[in-house]
């Protein structure tokens, strides 16, 4: 009968002088390095020597090379599929935590947080033991007699990359969505139903728009992090599932590295992801207005 959402909590907070330290931190550790990288993307490299200048050659190389283009498309594809899996599941989990499990929702939240305590690499390796050729999934299916030979698409494939990334990112997507759900009252849902909305319509016109701040963050987390990841594809992906992140990281270390080209690639990725993000947000807005 009670609901915790106070109207004040719904009000947008305003920028404030107390945000100055955060702003300073942001400028020194994010804006400036990014700017440096941006400048670098117009330079050239000769071996380990960086040569200042202004050339669009790096960008030209990226857009004309079929390899880079294919990698870019695959990266965006993997990121989209991962996000399309993660965000709806996280949304459903958050909804259940908020409206079905209620008080026990806090306990589930602790569990979600706990899963983040185990390291990123540990969790990738955990997925390897599940998806591997002699892994948990294959041996269980064989034992059950469902399959005779191990399924080889389970590991070292795009499938493995998507599953592993989804597993890694799900807890991260649950956090903002659950927190957004806390601002939705049971009576908000009931009011919509009382006024004649069926369940699907409540989702579209009330739940989704009201949880939008959380959806935005969850989308950004899972889309941007999966598009930028290069550890997962190198550990569970096959030769055919390298992502742009792998190539970018190659440009910054070891033999054959080329910082300016890497920087240019990073900016193309940033631009493409930003554009994708804006398109998806517009799409959601279009779905929720009626």
């Amino acid at each position: 009968m009670s609901s915790s959402a106070a109207p004040a909590a719904r009000e947008q907070s305003r920028p404030h002088a107390s945000m100055l330290p955060a702003a300073a931190f942001y400028i020194v550790f994010f804006a400036l390095p990014t700017l440096c990288l941006f400048v670098l993307s117009f330079w050239t490299a000769d071996g380990f020597q960086l040569i200042p200048g202004f050339t669009l050659g790096n960008y030209e190389k990226i857009f004309t090379s079929p390899l880079y283009r294919a990698l870019m498309i695959r990266t965006i594809g993997v990121a989209f599929v991962t996000t399309a899996i993660v965000v709806p599941i996280a949304f459903a989990v958050s909804f259940l935590m908020r409206f079905v499990f209620e008080r026990r929702g806090q306990f589930i939240l602790q569990m979600v947080l706990l899963s983040l305590f185990s390291g990123y690499l540990v969790r990738i390796y955990a997925w390897r033991t599940i998806l591997g050729k002699q892994g948990l999934l294959n041996s269980t299916l064989q034992w059950l007699g469902v399959i005779r030979e191990p399924l080889d698409f389970l590991i070292y494939s795009n499938f493995a990359v998507v599953v592993t990334l989804s597993g890694l990112l799900l807890p991260l997507a649950v956090l903002p969505l659950y927190s957004a759900m806390l601002n939705i009252g049971r009576d908000d849902i009931e009011a919509a139903r009382d006024l004649g909305a069926g369940r699907l319509h409540v989702l579209r016109t009330v739940l989704l728009p009201m949880a939008m701040p959380g959806v935005r963050t969850a989308f950004a987390f899972s889309f941007l992090l999966s598009a930028g990841d290069f550890v997962t594809p190198s550990l569970v992906g096959g030769a055919q599932s390298l992502l742009i992140g792998n190539i970018i990281s190659d440009q910054f270390r070891g033999i054959g590295s080329n910082w300016p080209l890497g920087a240019a690639m990073a900016f193309v990725v940033i631009a493409v992801m930003l554009a994708s993000y804006l398109i998806v947000m517009r799409l959601i807005r279009w779905v929720t207005t009626w």
């Binding site: 009252g185 009576d187 908000d188 009931e190 009011a191 009382d194 909305a197 069926g198 016109t205 728009p209």
Partner: peptide, 30 residues
């Protein structure tokens, strides 16, 4: 949603992402 009743809730439960007009129009649009 199928009943010919409507309810005024204790906290009002106005949809915060809609204007007053959109709130009142909600059932009519449906």
């Amino acid at each position: 949603e199928r009943r010919p009743t409507n309810m005024v809730f204790q906290r009002g439960a106005l949809f915060p992402h809609m204007s007053v007009r959109e709130n009142i129009a909600y059932s009519l649009k449906l």
